[in-house]
């Protein structure tokens, strides 16, 4: 039946594309992470070598061992997880009340406000991070204002600090936190809060016992949308962060571009992925549920 052939084609083309350009690349990264580096193009030794006409696999765990012996890798790995966790938490603290306020605004305002949240997302990520350099640097806007007001006499070192990285990540990823939270909060039934009040619950209690638990799915989705990419964030720490404490994304990129050590870069990538497998699967689970709920 031509119906079946057509369906196979529709699903098959993107499936093949994603296999080739998404799944196979990961397998290759995994493979290369077990290779030895060498001075050639490409700069890694093949895994399978032929000895006396027989395939002879040469698995090399040296790259992983190396990552655990040099403190640089472990410390930037842990630092990245910390930065991502703290930034996610800050995004949640700022984003939740914002999403709540938008969900409770009148219909006209709601659309305008949503538009204002989404608009920065459509402008360049890179340029928005760059804008913070001008604000945070020693003779930047913030220091100038503080000095003008006489609050400080010496410029505060703001740029190239952990603080700057947090600001940068929170700033860039805030819409990703707000949108799923809003989508969730907007669906809440207001009569539940009225019922809680009717039964004698204080507004704070009603919020903690009714609204907060019901928005758990939105909190999880928003947090994952911020946390997962933040772990591997490269642009923000490169422009705003410390030079003595790198994030793991930067380490990966340096290994690749500066040291031309593709196997170690691959091993770093696999290590990052290991930390993110569970969050990514959680995210997919949540996405599926969202789509099913729409039906």
């Amino acid at each position: 039946m031509d119906n079946h052939a057509g369906r196979r084609l529709v699903a098959g083309i993107p499936l093949l594309w994603l296999l080739l350009f998404f799944l196979v690349p990961f397998i290759i990264v995994f493979k290369i992470s077990f290779s030895e580096v060498r001075l050639a193009m490409p700069p890694y030794a093949p895994l399978l070598q032929w000895l006396h006409g027989l395939p002879h696999p040469k698995l090399n765990f040296g790259n992983y061992a190396f990552l655990f012996t040099d403190r640089l890798y472990i410390s930037s790995y842990l630092y990245s997880l910390k930065v991502a966790a703290v930034s996610t938490f800050c995004c949640l603290l700022i984003g939740y009340p914002m999403a709540y306020a938008i969900a409770h605004a009148g219909p006209t305002w709601r659309n305008v406000l949503l538009m204002m949240i989404v608009l920065p997302f459509w402008t360049s990520f890179l340029l928005r991070v760059y804008a913070w350099i001008g604000l945070l640097k020693n003779n930047g806007v913030i220091n100038n204002i503080l000095m003008y007001l006489g609050l400080i006499h010496e410029p505060l070192p703001l740029l190239q600090t952990d603080f700057a990285v947090y600001i940068g990540i929170v700033y860039s990823y805030l819409p990703f936190m707000i949108l799923p939270l809003y989508a969730n909060l907007e669906k809440h039934d207001n009569t539940l809060l009225e019922a809680a009040a009717d039964l004698g619950a204080h507004p704070v209690t009603a919020f903690l016992r009714i609204t907060l638990p019901q928005s758990a799915a939105g909190i999880v989705a928003g947090s994952l949308l911020v946390f997962i990419p933040a772990v591997g964030e490269y642009v923000v720490p490169s422009l705003l962060g410390r030079s003595d404490q790198l994030m793991i994304g930067r380490v990966l990129s340096d290994e690749f571009f500066e040291n031309r050590d593709w196997p170690v870069a691959s091993a770093v990538a696999i290590l990052i992925l290991l930390a993110l497998v569970i969050p990514i699967m959680l995210f997919q689970h949540y996405q599926r549920r969202e789509l099913e709920a729409q039906k």
């Binding site: 591997g232 994304g249 691959s266 990052i272 990514i280």
Partner: peptide, 15 residues
Amino acid sequence: IVMPEVITGLSLLLM
């Protein structure tokens, strides 16, 4: 959608 870009970039190039 959530994959850190350094990983996607590296894997694509290696592919």
